[in-house]
Design a protein around this nucleic acid. Structure first.
Length: 678
DNA sequence: TCGTCCGGCGTTTTT
DNA sequence: CGCCGGACGA
């Protein structure tokens, strides 16, 4: 097969450039995934490079899976075998499971998620006892940022990041120590640690970095503009024995600085590696030229960027709209009116997306969609494994796997209720601290007590339950063992007792069943690889976006609602970007004290470039914020825009319609009203 | 030990 | 306006 056919010259150049550092600046809709997957196929099939020495790194599992599927489609499963396409975190975990002992840690570690982190910081703050109240979220994000800068709890106080005048730094310093001690004690790592440990491993033992670098002779990184400092360091380590590094990205689509993404990684790539070849993919195959013109015009206001201008040979199309509406209800109403028009004209609803800056904008749209019985799907929101019931069961699994996992133990100790509440827990925790033992060790020895009081008896029951479970999980396969667990602790009965509303009860029990089903799917898929450890890892790293998406690639007839952030990488025929107004885009918190709003502008750019054929933006005259009506203004990014870029229409009256259209509209409005009264 | 009431606060998100 | 977390009472 000729892997260069059907590609434009810069795309071909990118495919052919296999050796040495390569930076592909791939603008929105420029056929990036196509180029990258063809490049891998070319390397394996044409250049006869062993697939085992090729590594592609992505951010999300979804992107990794997609890339794998696309390469498999080109090469077939046989030639694809051995190819590693992985997220940063999965790869890092794989390396740590093998080599973390060089840092004096146990490879049996557990991974703590955000809510685990929060409960540790909460406990730390309780012990810190300051007059002033500190916000645990702020502390946690400070700790995360420090880890990203390779600052340990010990080095914080002497680092340039520590400001003795700032009381928050004092609290952070205390909490960081408490937090990290707790993690160590529990044999746990948080998401930042996973990368931080890789860095330390590679720095302290360069021969290990070299080992992996020699294994992966050809490395590719997707969405490079989103990498943070530690991810950059990890790639540096992996390329310590060669320079075959291809990074792909678009600085104009960098929207994750708030979580540590460092745009200078892509801007400085040419300085870090020698003899970098730069290829720009500037032809857009996605949008009409009027949509693209608007996008180009908007983004050029950003000064710090790699210069690149997208062009297309597509149709002119329809000029994008900006609609002014009364309030958020009216905004939703006219958007959904348009959606219905699309629907009655017989077109597929999967062609439409509603994009917003903040999840708080969702309710009026959901109301309107339900009212009109338009099928829809909201992306994001609460993750499956964050639901209480699922967390309970996962805590059992974590504890069975890692008996040092104190958080898991605390979670399950009184679930279902065994009469071991916070008072007893506190007592045991203190004893554990005194004796330098784990919580479970204390509980075991307490249960040995001769006293035949209720508390001791239930402790004994608990200890023998855990004993039994550990045995069963060793002996049975995962599905049988988890079913046994749910039965043994009568978890369904516990759920029944926990909620009054029958509706919520059945929803929660469905969640549990869904969890059991997903275990079955996991075991079916991974067979003998389906260990408890692997399952826990998979659960935590699972992609928020594809949990509802176990369908077979057939698009459902429903519209999609999601944040601008989630929309990156996707495309739709029609896009409605709603709430394009000051304090929402740019968001309120980015406006204050002359801070940088360029990321907000890029967010607008990402939204615009999702649209293939039609783009509608909206803003309101006023909006209810936390129950209070506030006057609103259109986004600064769209003011002063020359007329030829955008059709601005006032939809609060009928001014945008001709007289006959107005009569038509009023007629249909009143007949709709009469219908709804039936 | 568990339920209820009140006060505070409120982005974006992956792993 | 609504959720979450802490305090306090049964």
């Amino acid at each position: 097969m000729n892997y260069l056919e059907g590609l434009n010259p810069p795309q071909q150049e990118a495919v052919r450039t296999v050796d040495g550092p390569l930076l592909i600046l791939a603008g929105a809709g420029s056929g990036k995934t196509r180029t990258v997957t063809f490049r891998m196929a070319y390397m394996i099939d044409e250049k006869r490079i062993n697939s085992q020495s090729i590594l592609a790194v992505t951010f999300t599992n979804k992107a990794a899976t997609e890339m794998k599927d696309r390469v498999k489609k080109i090469l077939g499963p046989r030639k694809t075998r051995g190819l590693t396409i992985s997220t940063f975190h999965s790869l890092a975990i794989k390396i740590l499971r093998e080599d973390i002992h060089h840092l004096g840690h146990n490879n049996n570690f557990t991974i703590y998620d955000t809510s685990d982190q929060m409960s540790i910081v909460r406990a730390a703050l309780k012990q810190f006892k300051a007059e002033k109240k500190f916000d645990k979220k702020t502390i946690l994000s400070k700790i995360g940022k420090l880890k990203n800068q390779s600052i340990t709890a010990e080095s914080f106080k002497h680092s340039s990041f520590y400001d003795p005048e700032n009381p928050y730094d004092d609290a952070t310093e205390y909490c960081y120590h408490y937090y990290q001690d707790k993690l160590n004690f529990c044999n746990a790592l948080d998401f930042d640690d996973i990368l931080f440990f890789i860095k330390r491993l590679f720095v302290q033992n360069p021969e290990i970095a070299q080992k992996y670098s020699q294994k992966y002779r050809y490395i590719m990184v997707d969405e490079y503009q989103d990498t943070n400092e530690l991810q950059f360091q990890m790639i540096k380590g992996l390329t310590s024995t060669h320079q075959n590094i291809c990074v792909v990205g678009d600085d104009d689509q960098s929207i994750y600085a708030f979580r540590g993404a460092d745009i200078t990684n892509i801007l400085n790539f040419e300085k870090v590696y020698q003899n970098v070849k730069v290829i720009k993919l500037e032809q857009n195959y996605r949008s009409t030229s009027q949509i693209l013109d608007l996008a180009n015009h908007v983004i050029q206001k950003n000064k710090k960027r790699k210069k690149k201008t997208m062009f297309s040979t597509n149709d002119n199309g329809v000029r994008p709209f900006l609609w002014l509406t009364h309030n958020s209800e009216h905004e939703a109403q006219i958007v959904i009116d348009e959606v219905i028009q699309h629907q009655v004209s017989g077109k597929h609803l999967s062609e439409i997306a509603i994009l917003y800056r903040s999840n708080t904008q969702i309710p009026p749209f959901e109301d309107q969609l339900r009212l009109n019985q338009v099928p829809y799907r909201v992306i994001g929101g609460q993750k499956f494994y964050e639901k209480k019931e699922i967390k309970d069961l996962i805590a059992y699994l974590s504890f069975i796997q890692n008996p040092k996992d104190e958080l898991a133990l605390r979670r399950i100790l009184n679930v279902p209720h065994r009469g071991i509440g916070t008072t007893s827990l506190k007592k045991y925790l203190e004893k554990a601290k005194e004796r330098k033992e784990t919580l479970f060790q204390v509980i075991c020895s307490e249960s040995q007590s001769e006293e035949k009081i209720k508390r001791i008896l239930s402790l004994q029951d608990f200890v023998s339950l855990i004993d039994d479970l550990q045995f069963k999980f060793k002996k049975m396969n995962l599905v049988q063992a988890i079913h046994y667990l749910v039965e043994k602790i009568s978890y369904m009965d516990f759920v029944d007792k926990s909620y009054d509303s029958p509706k919520i009860r059945s929803r929660k029990k469905d969640d549990v069943r869904m969890f059991l089903n997903s275990t079955e799917r996991f075991v079916d898929r991974f067979k003998e690889e389906a260990t408890l450890k692997n399952y826990l890892e998979k659960l935590l790293l699972v992609d928020n976006h594809d949990q509802n998406n176990q369908n077979d690639g057939v698009l459902k007839n429903e519209i999609t609602l999601m944040t601008l952030h989630s929309s990156k990488g996707l495309e739709f025929e029609k896009v409605f970007m709603v709430g394009v107004e000051e304090e929402l885009l740019p968001h309120k918190n980015t406006i204050k004290d002359g801070s940088d709003v360029s990321e907000e502008l890029r967010l607008l750019y990402v939204g615009i470039t999702r649209a293939k054929k039609k783009l509608y933006m909206t803003h309101c005259k006023e909006r209810k914020i936390y129950g209070k009506v506030i006057p609103r203004h259109q986004s600064r990014f769209l003011i002063d825009l020359p007329k030829e870029f955008l059709t601005k229409q006032d939809r609060t009256g009928f001014a945008h319609l001709s007289e006959t259209e107005e009569a038509e509209y009023k007629k249909s409005f009143f007949s709709n009203l009469l219908e709804s009264l039936d």
